[in-house]
Simulated assay, not measured.
Amino acid sequence: MATGLKKAVQLRAMGPDDLSAAYELSREQQWPHREKDWDRMLDLGQGVIAESEGRIVGTTMWWTFGEDVASIGMVIVSKDVQGQGLGRQLMNAALEQIGERTVLLNATAEGLNLYRALGFETVSSVYQHQGAAFSVPIPELIPNERVAPMKAGEISDIVELDRHATGLNRGRAVEYLCSYTQGVVLNRDGNQAGYALFRRFGRGYAIGPTVAPDIGGAKALISHWLGSNAGMFCRLDVPDDSGLSGWLDEMGLPCVGRVTRMCRGTAPQAGVLARTFSLINQALG
């Protein structure tokens, strides 16, 4: 394989035995992912690694949502080989495997020029909020509304609600997440109107995805998890149109970063009855 790198680099499929080295590569970038987080992402998707002289120097991963859409993430190039075209090679390898699907990603500032050159267009932004010293007000529920623990029998309804909110066929991902996370459901007039998951991730815990019919419902779901986990390090990745960023700042969960949402192809069309207020994570969206 032709390469602009000074040393020969080979690209190959990522496997479970590569996760320890991939984890160390993400630590080099000061990303918060645990090795277990890598493991779970590989369970749901596929990846490519770049190897030079027996050392992993680059990664990328992707996840398919039905026949039409995929998401790319975990694009990492070791600092000592950056600027030599490896990021483009990794992206091209992933895009070749993904095929004709629409492709979504959340880009750091460092990757923007590469992704634009590959045909990705800016859609919006995502804000990363996190912290442990937060104060949560009691949520203001409307009549006939409650937040309750998710039951196993509700997962199929949650999958359909998620599909409506995102325009994506994420059933396998949602069911997988529900197998090891805690979940709550927003019930309005006896119907499932939203949900939010809470799980170990990175330096602490992540709240997401959060799907709700409106910002009031989203705040009720998120407040449940924050209120029952006071003092725990929690993270949320919220779209810029969620309206939640200022609210999270006020509670003591400051914005510590921003990524750019990008799309190559026809963007999925979300429904009107519910929408996404926090992501699974920046890689999966």
Score class of each variant (00 low, 15 high):
158 I>S: 03
30 Q>L: 13
155 I>M: 10
249 D>N: 12
187 N>P: 01
149 P>Q: 05
191 N>G: 12
175 E>D: 12
131 G>I: 08
255 C>A: 10
88 R>N: 09
203 R>Y: 12
2 A>E: 15
253 L>S: 07
126 V>H: 11
116 R>M: 11
195 Y>C: 04
188 R>H: 07
120 F>C: 04
83 G>Q: 09
71 S>L: 06
91 M>L: 11
67 E>D: 14
164 H>E: 15
137 P>T: 07
32 P>S: 11
147 V>C: 02
63 W>L: 11
112 L>N: 01
224 H>K: 07
247 W>Q: 03
183 G>D: 02
138 I>V: 15
150 M>N: 00
189 D>Q: 14
37 D>M: 05
77 V>N: 09
147 V>W: 01
72 I>Q: 05
216 G>P: 05
283 A>S: 12
38 W>M: 08
214 D>T: 02
246 G>Q: 13
118 L>D: 06
189 D>T: 09
42 L>P: 03
146 R>G: 05
140 E>G: 12
176 Y>R: 06
48 V>P: 00
75 V>M: 13
279 L>C: 05
218 A>S: 03
225 W>K: 00
95 L>E: 12
48 V>R: 12
86 L>P: 01
88 R>C: 04
93 A>R: 09
75 V>C: 07
284 L>Q: 07
188 R>L: 08
159 V>I: 10
275 R>W: 04
16 P>Q: 15
219 K>M: 13
102 T>W: 04
40 R>D: 07
186 L>H: 08
132 A>C: 13
32 P>Y: 00
263 C>L: 04
156 S>H: 09
133 A>W: 13
216 G>F: 12
237 D>N: 11
41 M>L: 13
275 R>P: 00
110 E>M: 13
272 V>E: 15
146 R>C: 14
204 G>A: 05
230 A>Y: 14
108 T>P: 06
113 N>H: 15
102 T>K: 04
6 K>T: 13
200 R>Y: 09
182 Q>P: 06
147 V>G: 00
45 G>I: 03
259 V>W: 03
195 Y>P: 03
242 S>Q: 02
4 G>L: 10
35 E>F: 00
202 G>Q: 04
78 S>M: 08
105 L>I: 08
10 Q>T: 14
124 S>C: 04
272 V>C: 12
37 D>T: 02
161 L>Q: 03
185 V>P: 02
43 D>M: 09
66 G>W: 01
67 E>H: 09
1 M>I: 12
90 L>G: 00
105 L>C: 06
159 V>A: 04
185 V>C: 10
245 S>M: 10
195 Y>G: 01
91 M>E: 06
225 W>M: 03
176 Y>I: 00
260 T>G: 01
169 N>G: 03
234 C>P: 05
282 Q>Y: 15
240 D>K: 09
261 R>I: 03
36 K>T: 11
204 G>N: 06
54 G>W: 12
200 R>K: 13
36 K>N: 09
208 G>I: 02
68 D>E: 15
228 S>T: 15
91 M>Y: 00
